[in-house]
Structure formats: structure tokens, C-alpha cells
Design a protein around this nucleic acid. Structure first.
Lengths: 345, 345
DNA sequence: GGTAGCAATGTAAAGCTTTACATTCACGAG
DNA sequence: CTCGTGAATGTAAAGCTTTACATTGCTACC
């Protein structure tokens, strides 16, 4: 037998018994089903309210075999606003539909990701928003292809709509901005090309270089998993490159922080010794002097789009395009970029 | 009837049928119950594995009336690492026990908080970690008192263990540090005293002032909800106070960012014109020149403690103390504090 | 007036697992 | 040989809701 402890919560059977009607009628009344006499329905609703009735989500989900009670939010990291701010806003938007968001952090570990996906399926989630890990397993992909899924930030080649920042163009703009100031030795610190957003940004970079008449092949580049520590090391290496780059472009989550740290530690003055463009969150940059030239994307915009897409996927909306849905980021010029300094060896 | 769509997932009945045993035996074998012949148990487990069986969490929860399948994580904001980092780490730790964490953002709105608590109860969560909203409703408190609860960051007077940063002492230290440098006009920007952590910090501040022979009553103070915008305005007002404070102490989440912004905008040089101590996240401070004197607490330490306490509450551990469990923060001296400048009017 | 048809309500099954209680079987003791 | 004991397994109920289908009772029309 199930729970022995017969807890206080009232159920439909209690309401039905007390009111002398059947559970079916109670259920229909509470779900605003048409076929119940309005006066009776009202009485039932009032009584349910007075008894503080809350329907058991588990039972409802079990009965319906799938409800919107739960959706998953599966992301590799959460220590950067690109994830934490989007997660928060999604949770807020989804809760308005009475949907709970289950937050799951994979740590970018494909094994953990797979296990967590399995568990989410076991919990009969209605669907999920996922930012896949770098080396996502085929098995995970298969699970995903059987669920209503929305991709976020990163694509992994499944048939699903996705929400992404439109990075290609803005990265090109960033490069052209630097080139326009006279920089020829531009370094790039970004995320790996295995990540779809890493690939997109890299395309944007290359296009910018080519348009500026520079050779992307000779560009000092580090493509790293976006952790702060990686970024610090990568940026230090880039700054020490023989060509002594006069400009540094950084994209991707926690990379910005680590890079800023490294630049700071290098003793180079900005923008005299080094022009710096970072992709990321405005909150960090208030402390910087001079203010940073940044690439910014609206996290709430991404979240709204993600929540909307998920809702449409759950509704099996036939008009929904499976491809990427792009949110445009913005290049904000500020004091951290300028003409190449004269103080170079 | 329930779901018509008879989806693929195999259940215990399928396994039982195929193996010619009863569902009870299957269930027992899978749950490593003793009373099943080892050889048979092994066969059942192997078959379950081969069929990719995953138990339905909803049904299990329904049957057990309460499991560890779901716990809630109810917080007012998530845009600061004090919440986002702790949330992420808790999610990670809990998932190791196969527990899903449902993230819920109240926006510090008591009404929303109540509604979300109701929904969580309806989902038969096993327990929750909560950082209560400022004006938490009596009804919410009542719901909480019937659940395994752990408080985080903020207390709300319910009988439950809580995890808090031990702020009183460190705030005293901060004030004494400034006073020791010769500051007598110290301003404070913090969170409201209605918040338990706001109250704690304020006590620490007062104690520090008194020990330094200064009058807390004459201290310029702004106690505000921790949003960046509030902080910017509050800091500007403090800096414009007739006494022209020579030192500013800022505590609390997003307040640090907004305050830094305001200080920056004020044109005051640090630490010559103004000594600055901020409470918060190291990630922001890498960009600052000079590096900031900060008060830092280990988010992963808080998360570990919170997850551990929740686990113990769920186990109804009788040795568990209901009071606060403190994690000690650290005052890190750096370049943003120094003797009061001479350049004051 | 009889019946078709509709509206309102009831009955019961399904969704999936766990587990108390019942049953079976084998073996040892009397 | 019988019966008790205990281990292994089966049966069925409980957990709570939703909903297909059955039933009831009425209106309205021919």
C-alpha cells in the first residue's frame, strides 16, 4: 500500500463525499468543464476553496501521462548571467502558467547530462529547454528527439527550435571596429568551435578579418571551455604572443572575467597599450575604467523567446519553425577601444 | 481514463509479464529488497536494464505519498551569485541523490511566494530551501511549518534550521578597519532591517561604530531592497550627504554593483577621496583599479551546508539543531581602502 | 403520448508503483 | 506422517486525478 500517514490534504474524494456528488463532477467543476450546472459548479469551487484544496500534481500528471506541471532546464553552467539570468526569467515566465521549472546543471559533462535527462524523463516532464554539453552523447540526442525540446545558446543538431544570440554579424562588426581604428594584430579568445555558438562567432570573426583585408589564419586565437581559469591562462598566452597583439576580442560567458583579470595583471594600459572588446554582462563592467566596449545581448529577450518557443512546442504548433530563432546583440562602443598605441616595442 | 497515447516507456507490468513473475517481485528486485532470490533478482535487473526501464517518478511519488524526487528552491532573486551560485551548487549536490530541484523565483513578492508555495505543496515536494521574501505572509509561514524546510540567507521566524553567512562579526571588522585608518564619517548602504540578514549586518555595523567610539545614530545610512537601481540612487544620496562621508561600506547582493556604478560616476578617486568596502562576489572585482577591499563568503560552502541540512531535515534527524548554521565570511583587505584623503572641502 | 436526443451526473478504469497481506512450497521437527 | 515455520512469490489495494462510457431524467418534437 501507499502512504500510510494519511496526511491532512483534502482530495477530490473528500470534497465529493461532503457535497454528496461524485468525484467526476468535482473534477469537472474544478477544471471548468462545461457540462456541470453553473450553480453547482460554483458551490463546489467555493467549498474546495474553503477547504484549501490543492490538486495533487503527481496524480494529475500520472493520469494525464503528460502535463505541463514540470519542464526541465538543462544547462552546463549557471555562473554567468547568460545562464542564470535566462534561467531566472524563464522560471518566472513558466510559473505564470503553473509550470515548475526543474533546474539541472550538467557541468558540461556528457555522462551527467545523459543521466539527468533520463531522470527528467522518468519524472514525466512535459518538455525541456537545453543548452547541450560540448560532447553530447548520441543516447542523449535520442532522448531529446522524443521530447518537446527548445535549444538555448547552443545547438546540437536535433530537430528542434532554438534560441540563439545572433553572434555572427556582431562579431564581424567588432572586428571591423577594431580594424577601422587601425589594428592589424587582433587576438581572439573564444569558446570552442564544437559549440555551435563558438562556431558562429568564429565565422563572424573570420568574415570580419577578411573584409578588413587581414588573414584570419595568422590571427592569435585561443578557443577554450568558458571557465574563468581557462580564460586567464588563455589571455595571458595571447598577450605574450610574439606579434604582441594590439587588440583583444573576448567572447563567451566566464571568459570575459578571466580575460579582464589577465589584462589587468599584464600591466597594459587600456586603450593605449591594448584595445579590448568583451562579450558579456553589463553588471561586471561598471567598475572598469575606462568603460568597456562590449557586445551585449538581452537576456530577458532570450528568456522570453525560449519560454514562448517551449510553450509552442508543447502545443505542437505546426507553424513553428524548427530552426534558430535569433536575438540580436548590440556592439556598444566605449572607452576600451582606440587606435593602436605608439608605446609598442 | 488516463493517457491514451500509450507511449513506449516500459513499466513494471511489462517486465513482470515478459519474465513471468509478478509486479511485486519486479519492484522488490529493483529496489534491492531482501526477500527475492538473488539469481532471480539479478535476472530481473538485467532485463530491466536491457529494456531501458526507468521507474515513473510520479507514480512512485504518488504511491509513497512523499519521496525525495522533488525539492523546492524558493528565492527572491537570482541575479546575484549569492543566489545563482548557491542554487547551481545545490542543484548539483541534490542531483547526486536523484533529487530534482525546482527553482522558483518570487521576485520578493509575498503574494507570488504564497502561490508558489501552494503549487510546490501540490507537487508533493519532499521539502524546500527558502530565502523568504521581505514581507512573507502568515499563510506562507504556516505552509512552511508543515514541511521540511531549510532557510537560506534570510530567516523568517519559523522553526527550522537555516544557513547564513556570519555577518555580524565581519561587518564589525569592516567598520573597525575603516575607523582604524582614521575615518570618522562612514556611510553605510545595506539591506532593510526587516530582512534577517539586513538586521544582522546592521547590528555588526553598530557594534563596530560603538567600539570605535563613533555614534551609529549619526551615521549616514540607506537601507534598501537589493536592486542595482536602488543602490545607485542610494549611494549617490549618501555621497552627497552634508558630512561628505570619507568611507562607504556596502553590503548585499546587487547593491554592490549599483554602488560601484554611483561611486564611479561621482568622480571621486579611490581610495584618495573615498574608501570603499563592498560585500559580494569576487567575479565583479577583477576589473576594478585599485582592487577592492571586500567581504566574501563561500557560496559553495553555503550550498553544501544547505544541501546537507535539507538532507538531514528530510531524514528527520533528531540531532539537528533548528537554529542558524553559520558560514564565516572573510574581510579581504585591498587597495580601495586607505586613510581619509586631504582633498576634502 | 412516445421516443429521440441532450444535458447533467455517476461509475469505474487507467495511469504506475509500492507494499501489506495472502498464498505457496519446502524442509525440519515432533 | 503431520504440522509448524519461514522464505519466496503472488494478489490486490492504495495513492489521487481525469475521463470514457453508462445512466438518469428531462425537454421537445412528431
Amino acid at each position: 500500500m501507499g502512504g500510510r500517514t494519511r496526511r491532512s490534504p483534502v482530495g477530490v474524494v473528500d470534497l465529493a463525499r461532503d457535497l454528496g456528488v461524485s468525484t467526476a463532477t468535482v473534477s469537472r467543476a474544478l477544471n471548468n468543464s462545461a457540462s456541470v450546472r453553473p450553480e453547482l459548479a460554483e458551490r463546489i469551487r467555493a467549498y474546495a476553496e474553503s477547504r484549501g484544496y490543492v490538486p495533487n500534481r503527481l496524480a494529475r500528471g500520472l493520469s494525464a501521462s503528460t502535463t505541463r506541471a514540470f519542464v526541465g532546464f538543462v544547462i552546463p553552467y549557471v555562473d554567468t548571467p547568460a545562464y542564470s539570468a535566462v534561467a531566472a526569467e524563464c522560471a518566472r515566465l513558466l510559473s505564470r502558467d503553473g509550470t515548475h521549472m526543474i533546474l539541472t546543471i550538467t557541468g558540461n559533462d556528457p555522462e551527467r547530462e545523459l543521466q539527468q535527462l533520463r531522470e527528467l524523463v522518468a519524472s514525466r516532464i512535459a518538455g525541456l529547454i537545453i543548452s547541450p554539453s560540448t560532447g553530447i552523447l548520441a543516447e542523449s540526442r535520442q532522448i531529446l528527439s522524443g521530447l518537446p525540446v527548445v535549444e538555448l545558446h547552443r545547438a546540437c543538431g536535433i530537430r528542434a527550435p532554438g534560441v540563439f544570440s545572433d553572434d555572427e554579424q556582431v562579431m564581424t562588426d567588432g572586428v571591423l571596429h577594431l580594424a577601422g581604428l587601425g589594428h592589424t594584430d587582433i587576438a581572439y579568445l573564444g569558446t570552442p568551435r564544437e559549440l555551435s555558438n563558438g562556431a558562429t562567432r568564429w565565422r563572424g570573426i573570420c568574415r570580419g578579418m577578411e573584409r578588413a583585408g587581414l588573414d584570419p589564419g595568422r590571427m592569435p586565437v585561443r578557443l577554450l571551455e568558458p571557465t574563468r581559469e581557462n580564460a586567464r591562462i588563455g589571455a595571458e598566452e595571447l598577450l605574450a604572443t610574439p606579434g604582441r597583439p594590439s587588440a583583444l576580442l573576448v567572447s563567451g560567458g566566464a571568459l570575459s572575467v578571466g580575460a579582464a583579470e589577465a589584462v589587468h595583471g599584464s600591466g597594459r594600459r587600456i586603450p593605449d597599450d591594448l584595445s579590448l572588446v568583451v562579450y558579456g554582462d553589463p553588471a561586471w563592467f561598471v567598475l572598469s575604467d575606462p568603460p568597456l566596449t562590449t557586445i551585449q545581448v538581452s537576456y530577458s529577450g532570450l528568456a522570453r523567446k525560449a519560454a514562448e518557443l517551449l510553450s509552442r512546442v508543447l502545443d505542437a504548433d505546426p507553424d513553428l519553425s524548427q530552426g534558430p530563432h535569433l536575438v540580436a546583440p548590440e556592439l556598444r562602443l566605449a572607452g576600451s577601444t582606440g587606435p593602436p598605441g605608439t608605446a609598442r616595442p
